[in-house]
């Protein structure tokens, strides 16, 4: 990346990246943030006027100018995270790795942090790589999403691509227990858009109880709902049904199933 091999960690590469981890602090607990930034200035060899200008810009954007001289331990979690960010950005990296930046933050602080990241990304054109379990982080910030599962990439695309516009999830319970192929044949949908919950071996055994009526999920366009329902009703009897808005969280859950 950036024309370097990250595992070699060449100095020039290290000058161009930054790492922020939500749970690990690089700032000194007992010192005001400015003193820690001063050390970073020396480490990255930033000329003082440039350093001052950047610090001013970042502190203003994040609205923490008045806290710069407060001991880190006296700051709130949100303010501390903002200081961590300033510390990470003070050398103007080209690539910023953020690991769970909003972990433990309240909704307001997380929102402000996201706004800042968006703004910084727009102003400085720096690449921001974000790993997060918080779907809001991803929906609000990311233009490209990679979903990993045990080391393998199982999705690569936009956040919107995961939840296409006008798409929804139809949940139906039937008297009968058709297979995916039978359903695909009846509805004319691709088998990949149909998902049978709990199609485990015990369901196949066909015990005569409630388990027979597991919900079936169809991913389809809003406009198609009525047509599909009609097709289903020609062959099967519907016990009940519902329509779900697909949040990113749902989508990813589905990807993992």
């Amino acid at each position: 990346m950036l024309g370097f091999d990250p595992f070699q960690r060449p100095i020039e590469f290290r000058r161009k990246i930054a790492l922020v981890m939500g749970q690990k602090a690089q700032l000194w607990w007992d010192l005001p943030a400015v003193d820690a930034f001063d050390l970073l200035r020396a480490i990255y060899d930033i000329p003082t006027p440039i350093y001052k200008e950047r610090l001013h810009t970042l502190a203003t954007l994040l609205d923490v100018t008045k806290h710069l001289n407060t001991q880190i331990r006296r700051l709130s979690l949100g303010e501390r995270m903002k200081m961590e960010l300033i510390g990470a950005l003070i050398h103007w990296p080209n690539v910023i790795f953020l690991d769970e930046p909003t972990i433990g933050l309240d909704i307001l602080a997380a929102h402000k942090l996201r706004e800042f990241l968006k703004e910084f990304n727009r102003l400085e054109k720096a690449t921001i790589i974000l790993t997060s379990h918080n779907m809001e982080d991803i929906e609000k910030l990311c233009s490209r999403v990679l979903i990993m599962r045990t080391g393998e990439i199982i999705y690569d695309g936009t956040a919107n691509g995961l939840t296409e516009k006008g798409e929804c999830r139809l949940r139906v319970r039937l008297m009968q227990s058709p297979t995916v192929d039978e359903l695909a044949h009846v509805t004319g949908l691709a088998p990949s858009a149909i998902f049978l919950q709990n199609k485990g071996p015990e369901a196949a055994a066909g015990d005569d109880d409630e388990d027979d009526h597991k919900p079936i999920f169809f991913t389809l366009k809003y406009d198609n709902i009525v047509a599909i329902l009609q097709k289903i009703m020609t062959t099967y009897t519907i016990i009940n049904m519902g329509i779900e808005e697909p949040s990113l969280e749902n989508v990813i859950q589905r990807l993992f199933q």
Binding site: R9, I11, L19, M21, K24, A25, Q26, I43
Partner: peptide, 18 residues
């Protein structure tokens, strides 16, 4: 253990020095 070394490794000086 807490992975703070990760941060030191991204700095452009020797991590042991820091």
């Amino acid at each position: 253990n807490k992975g703070e070394l990760d941060i030191l490794l991204t700095k452009p000086v020797h991590p042991l020095f820091l």
